[in-house]
Amino acid sequence: MRVTFHGELVQLREQLVAMCAMAAQAMRQASRALLMADLDLAERVIAGDAALDQARGGCEDHAQSLLALQAPVASDLRSILAAVYSAEKIERMGDLAAHIADTARFSHPDHAVPADLEDTFARLGEIAAGMADRLGELIGQPGVDGFAELDETDHAVDALHSRVLTTITGPGWPYGVRTATSLALLARFHERFADQAVSVAKRLDFAATGEFPA
């Protein structure tokens, strides 16, 4: 019975790993759509968000069946509850990528990001997608301390977020309030995407050790 149960936990982790891959792809495609003013790609990202919603539901159903049919000990119970928490956060990462794609769609045929901030937003998208990739690796290797690593990466996202805000609120900003507001939201979407990844990593560490990392 325990062998079967732990096999189910492995499958649950695999579902979460797949969700991370979907979130990473959504962020990469949303970033490309944003920077290239690619309407078709933006539409695909938005439409594809439903698949992550369904994947979250599948993880939650699987976790609930394990809770109902098994009697998990403390560490296993933490793993199951962490999976439910993680599925919600990863699904939210997909939502945030879809928000970025929606901004690209709304701005089309114009570019939402001025040329002098393209590199900054390209870097934001690259780091955020990489965090989703790394999160998938951490989920697939339970017990690995990943919170400190992703938290450090998140500092780079925070710095880029701050750079955007400083630029759009500076006295020499030439693109107006509407563009500044849109860019502030875009930077926030990237920043929140990264925050969700860090939050999952923190919960994974708790599931492995029984203590939240400082």
Results as ranks from 00 to 15, higher is better:
Met22Trp: 08
Leu41Gln: 14
Ala184Phe: 03
Val164Tyr: 06
Gly140Val: 01
Ala115Thr: 14
Asp76Leu: 13
Glu211Phe: 06
Gln70Gly: 05
Asp110Met: 10
Cys59Phe: 01
Arg188Ser: 14
Gln54Met: 10
Gln15Leu: 14
Ile100Pro: 02
Glu191Phe: 04
Leu66Asn: 02
Gly143Pro: 03
Ala37Gly: 07
Ala132Leu: 07
Ala98Asn: 08
Ser79Pro: 00
Cys59Ser: 06
Ser31Asn: 13
Gly57Tyr: 01
Asp205His: 08
Leu81Pro: 01
Phe193Gln: 02
Glu137His: 12
Val164Trp: 05
Ser65Tyr: 01
Asp102Ala: 13
Met131His: 02
Arg92His: 15
Leu52Asp: 04
Gln25Arg: 14
Leu12Gly: 00
Val113Ile: 14
Leu150Gly: 03
Ala51Asp: 14
Val177Thr: 15
Arg105Ala: 10
Phe206Ser: 03
Leu124Phe: 08
Leu77Ser: 07
Ala201Cys: 02
Val45Arg: 02
Val157Ile: 15
Ile127Asp: 04
Ala180Tyr: 08
Leu183Pro: 06
Ala83Tyr: 09
Gly172Val: 11
Ile127Leu: 15
Leu138Thr: 02
Met1Ile: 12
Tyr85Phe: 13
Phe193Tyr: 11
Ile100Trp: 03
Asp38Lys: 12
Leu9Val: 07
Leu66Gln: 04
Ala194Cys: 06
Leu52Gly: 07
Val113Pro: 09
Ala197Tyr: 03
Phe106Met: 10
Phe206Lys: 04
Trp173Ser: 10
Gly170Met: 05
Glu60Arg: 12
Glu60Lys: 06
Asp53Ile: 00
Asp195Val: 11
Ser75Tyr: 00
Phe212Val: 04
Ala55Met: 06
Gln29Pro: 01
Phe121Pro: 10
Arg44Trp: 08
Glu88Ser: 14
Arg13Pro: 01
Ala82Lys: 06
